[in-house]
């Protein structure tokens, strides 16, 4: 197990302030009481006048890996970016329906998105380390949120890097620029960066699409290990990847949720014809 001691399981964390203050009882409930981390009902989303997501109903279980699959442009990345409200940075993006994280309404206008993003980490398609040292990259989030006692920062960085299986490769050059790392290392650094703020959930938007097969394998291994501590949602184009790393899978097509369920079932015994065509590689 690679769960570091300082990275307590998310629920043990001091719950973040604002969300916590509004719904104190729910936020402190143990994970088991909320089998669904994310739940959505009749969720729609638009970019300007163009509707990209239609009436989605989906539950994502706590401490599991859920994969979003589907052809390009089917809206899976859009959905992912609603979970931590990254769509707020895109002008003209709006949504309606219900989308909640542990019962907290994620579409609430007054929701503190900064705090939400502290609780929901994200890893992007292309590695995007800041042009700073490796250490400063990992320490960036903790420094923002002061989620550490001062002396713990080095320990926190080390544990985060261990959690992303990068520690052994970089422990001797923490002060050198993160841009000098290889693509796969950069992506694992981005995972470490996300882990360091103690999120309860990780969103991964095609995290391996810019990487070579070996780096991909190491990231996949990492995802399987991180499952014990985090709820993970991964968007992927790669069906083998979805079947290798995920517990449940949701298949999207043209902005609609076609089918979702346990990964082994969905891949071996799809109920829907479109799903079957897609997972068997007949289209997409």
């Amino acid at each position: 197990m690679m769960i570091p001691t300082t990275l307590r399981p998310p629920i043990d964390h001091a719950p973040p302030t604002s969300i916590d203050q509004r719904r104190p009882d729910e936020a402190r409930l143990p994970a088991a009481a909320h089998p669904s981390a994310i739940s959505m009902r009749g969720f729609n989303s638009w970019y300007g006048d163009h509707q990209v997501l239609h009436a989605l109903d989906l539950e994502i279980a706590t401490r599991q890996v859920c994969a979003f699959i589907g052809p390009s442009g089917c809206g899976k990345s859009t959905l992912l970016r609603w979970i931590n409200r990254m769509n707020d940075t895109i002008p003209g993006a709006r949504a309606a329906g219900t989308l909640s994280l542990h019962g907290i309404d994620l579409l609430d206008r007054s929701l503190d998105v900064v705090d939400l993003r502290r609780r929901v980490g994200m890893v992007f398609q292309k590695p995007n380390p800041f042009p700073k040292s490796i250490f400063d990259n990992v320490a960036f989030g903790p420094r923002l949120h002061r989620v550490y006692a001062r002396t713990d920062l080095e320990e926190l960085v080390e544990q985060s890097l261990r959690a992303s299986a990068l520690w052994d490769e970089v422990k001797d050059r923490l002060d050198s620029s993160a841009l000098g790392l290889s693509g796969g290392q950069q992506q694992r650094l981005c995972i470490a960066r996300a882990v360091a703020i103690g999120p309860e959930m990780l969103l991964m938007d095609e995290p391996c699409s810019a990487l070579d097969p070996r780096s991909t394998a190491s990231i996949e291994q990492l995802i399987r290990e991180l499952r014990a501590s985090y709820t993970i949602v991964i968007v992927t184009h790669n069906m083998q990847q979805a079947s290798r790393v995920s517990d449940s899978t949701a298949f999207f097509y043209e902005g609609r949720l076609i089918e979702s369920g346990a990964t082994d079932l969905l891949f071996t015994n799809p109920k829907n014809r479109q799903t079957e065509d897609y997972v068997t590689g007949r289209f997409g």
Binding site: M86, T89, V114, R117, F124, K126, F140, L144, H145
Partner: peptide, 25 residues
């Protein structure tokens, strides 16, 4: 833009993004 996205995803405010990521970069 990916650097800004990365910083926002870590829970940065616009000030954090501008002053701690964009300007240094």
């Amino acid at each position: 833009q990916s650097l800004r996205d990365g910083a926002y995803a870590l829970g940065s405010t616009k000030f954090d993004v501008s002053a701690k990521v964009v300007v240094p970069a």
